[in-house]
Design a protein around this nucleic acid. Structure first.
Lengths: 343, 343
DNA sequence: TGATTGGATGGAAGCGGTTCCACGAGGGGG
DNA sequence: CCCCCTCGTGGAACCGCTTCCATCCAATCA
């Protein structure tokens, strides 16, 4: 029994007589032989695994995306190799180090450097970007700008005028510009409504991890906002916690809108802009799988839609605090007709 | 420049003259050369990656464990390869297929077949079991039995007597016997309190995914329970949803206790038995990493402790419903003195 | 000055598969 | 009866790296 024959039997390739096939299988079973995946990968050039690169993959929003990815990969026989990016220096090397380790690549909320994308392409590794737009590879995105607008308009329609924005600094490290696009939507909505943008109400912090600090700063303002639009649910939730610790009632004293609609948001009753997280993962995986089958998906641009979900953290501002009189003292003269047009 | 020399420079092994080293590095930079990880793995027998096997890894409890694992692996330079087990047939092969793909293995809430454990040992792959006890490999566990007892005793101390248990069928597929151990704790607590075990109050369903069905069945009973101990927070939460849809108030009409204390539980205000999920991941990763360094950790048995966290889903039963009169009609004769000894 | 020693270097072997090619045997057609 | 095909099979070459061994050269020592 030559090595070639055994290989052929195991891979079911080419023609092998029924007799030898049976004999090989017999011996394989007896020896409990299991082919070495690494050797096979080296020889064939295919690893049967796809890489998923995500910053802080245990974040709820990423996890919900993975919920869409995992089942598809599992049922297609691909191994899921997770590359967690937690520090800037990790990101530098990841895109390079995956070459030769994976057959395909899916990134979540990350902007791959153009140079790396070129190398990947040269290496014949298909790439799909979930939650990040790019001109030359397949992407699955939502209209963050529009989402920012939706959240802000909701607040405006409730009668709010002093609306803060809490987001991530687009440090360029993770290239997660979703937050900044949402901020643009926020600014546009304000502009369209003729509400002046007040720079002191726009708070940016790295990683979206310092919502408490932002809450404190906002509260310390001479005239605090009556509403906050946070660029992610996690930020919104953390902010609400801090606010309530400081004795502020949500939404009575302050309205809060989030973004994403992660599972937690439902339980916390958070008003938020919902994006189809799990679906984004599914679409991304579909795209990648089809690229691995040989299809050309470079032009694919999946656009998922957003939806405002109004729950319990937004309400009209207290009387006299619509913020119309920008700097004016809190004169409680408006009576009770502050509700604009609730959804 | 021979291949050997280049290899030596790249791996910083053995002696290479400063001149050649510089020259090699130069060319490497110029060519943008990146070593092929697969070939390296085949040659050295080390993959620089560790496998994590978990059933449904996107479940909150697993994710929180991974939160402990990921940072440690990342900072030690190991790749995290995730093997998601969603179907029984996947489990059969996983333990075999990891051989040759990973240097070490960490399983979560899974019972590896003894035979596979032997093969792994023979292949020199260290294994750490998180959330599953085993005699011959390193484990990180909690005392589920005691946890079941804690939850049940809490309910008993509130005055409940008709206490239901909602858990997973220990189908042997995932070998997740945590649920059944918790059930034993539940039974012991009842026995110790002299409360007879009523089989119709013990509901087991696969995957812990059918809490709604269990809730329905419980409600349909001639004399429904006044409290439920669910073997996981997810089950508890799903059950509460269903209960409330049916017009039952929690905890007014029915008390519910969960298990795990996942993040959601905090937001949902669920009373539950808290186990240090993230910490379990950290401990597991530490053990594995140290085994990878060559330490013998086979005897390691990390025992983490549990804690009852009382929130808003448990309360004394309604008057006259302590269940003392097992089958008795709901005679509302007890007056208002139903509170036993609230925590 | 010749022998000795040790550091630097080149390259072959091997890791465990897959694949291609050559070869042999058996069968059908001329 | 011989030739040619075809099918089945064995094994060499190769995938890209590490590692060991042999070689070489220069410096040190006698």
């Amino acid at each position: 029994m030559g090595v070639g024959t055994v290989s052929r039997v195991i891979n079911g390739s080419a023609a092998v007589s029924e007799a030898t096939r049976r004999r090989v299988l017999e011996v394989v079973a007896e020896l409990g032989y299991e082919p070495n995946a690494t050797a096979r990968a080296l020889s064939t050039g295919r690893t049967r695994s796809v890489g998923v690169i995500a910053p802080f993959f245990t974040r709820p929003s990423v996890i919900e995306r993975l919920r869409g990815v995992a089942p598809l990969l599992a049922s297609s026989g691909y191994q899921l190799v997770l590359f967690d990016v937690e520090r800037p220096d990790q990101r530098t090397g990841v895109f390079r180090s995956v070459i030769g380790r994976v057959d395909g690549l899916l990134t979540i909320s990350l902007a791959p450097p153009k140079a790396d994308l070129r190398r990947l392409a040269a290496a014949g590794i298909p790439v799909v970007l979930v939650d990040h737009a790019h001109e030359s590879v397949a992407t699955v995105t939502v209209d963050d700008l529009e989402g920012g607008r939706m959240a802000t308009e909701h607040l405006l329609s409730l009668g709010h005028r002093r609306i803060a924005f809490a987001g991530d600094t687009d440090d360029g490290v993770h290239g997660a510009s979703a937050s900044s696009r949402r901020c643009i939507g926020y600014q546009r909505a304000l502009a369209d409504a003729g509400v002046p943008l007040r720079p002191e109400l726009v708070k940016l912090r790295p990683h979206g991890r310092e919502a408490p600090a932002i809450a404190e700063e906002l509260l310390a303002l001479a005239t605090p906002p009556t509403a906050v639009f946070a660029a992610s649910d996690l930020q919104a939730l953390a902010m609400i916690d801090t606010l309530e610790e400081r004795g502020m009632g949500v939404p009575d004293d302050l309205s809060v809108v989030g973004f994403d609609d992660v599972e937690l948001a439902r339980y916390a009753g958070l008003t938020t802009v919902a994006q189809p997280l799990e679906d984004s993962g599914t679409r991304g995986a579909e795209l990648l799988l089809s690229a691995l089958e040989g299809d050309d998906v470079l032009q694919a641009r999946q656009h998922l839609s957003l939806e405002l979900v109004v729950r319990g953290t937004t309400a009209p501002p207290r009387e006299g605090e619509t913020g119309r009189g920008e700097h004016g003292p809190k004169t409680a003269t408006d009576g009770m007709i502050s509700q604009a047009s609730p959804t």
